[in-house]
Amino acid sequence: MATTRRKKKSNLKQPMQTRRQLLKHIAVNSGLALGVGGVAWWRWSQDPVVEKITPVAEWKNYRVAPSNHYPVMAVIHGQQVPAMVRQGVDSLGGITRFINKGDRVLLKPNVGWDRQPEQAANTGPELVNAVATLCREAGAASVWVTDVSLNDPARCFSRSGIEKAAIEAGAQVRLPTHNDFVDTQMGGQLLKVWPVPRFFHEADKVINLPIVKHHSLCGCTLSMKNWYGVIGGKRNRLHQSIHQSIVDLASAVRPTMTIMDATRVLKRNGPTGGSLADVSFEETIIVSLDEVALDAYALRFLDLQPDAVPFLAMAETAGLGVVDWRSLNVVERQVG
């Protein structure tokens, strides 16, 4: 049964508005109007997006003053990596020439791949351990080890033995997470602004610890090529002009010194390797203040000549060092 009762009309009257209420509403609304207008004035723009200005960091120069008293490069042959490293660094003036008390030292080995030390795709853990120990002895406040790996970083540092070797020497492994990269001015011909782990900007001294390896595109991976591991982002585009990229990187990062691992050398199938048949024992450690000379010297392990590797001449032109290492003060010693 449908009811036809009409809804009762409401006859309730609004209470009288007082002057106080009226003034209060006017005041509140004026405030809101001002606020809205203010926000509009503050944020009005002809551009549809706000350009974010992210600070761009600059590279420090980690080098120490050059000296004529000491050789520029020391080539040490032997079997005991710690003794070889010590001998090499001592030939160049001892660790205290390079590391001051309280320095924060960053070691940059090549830890690009999830491989074991025997496969010689990464810098040997003994070298990392020996250099970290030297730095600690010299009174470094902290020693950090980092790299921007190609494979999963946790696996690379763990399976290369470098994590263990670093911790045993009192160093700290700092794996760059996606929050750790800082836009940095590379100032190169090709490379302008690239993301770099902030540890490089926090450190006082940087020591490059490369390994000698074969590389199909540019023939070899030596000390200057090792700086691929300081940049993040889409760095695989660098291969399109690999020699200029290497020179740009080496111009941007000026390390305190470079200690090259040529104990095991990956002769073929680099830079990943994998087969022990491709590894040859060369039992050499080279400490150098001139990366160009160092790389030129290290070509012998891969049976290459300097003219086969264009980045060397380009680096010399850029003033990074000299290709003709024989013209420099170089010592060669046998340890043990």
């Binding site: 190609l150 590389h215 199909s216 291969h239 399109q240 002009s241 199938n269 990943t272």
Partner: peptide, 16 residues
């Protein structure tokens, strides 16, 4: 005609 071969570099097998 641009050099690259990143794929060859990262290939993990031996031989690649």
């Amino acid at each position: 005609d641009v050099p690259c071969i990143v794929c060859e570099e990262v290939c993990p097998t031996t031989p690649k």
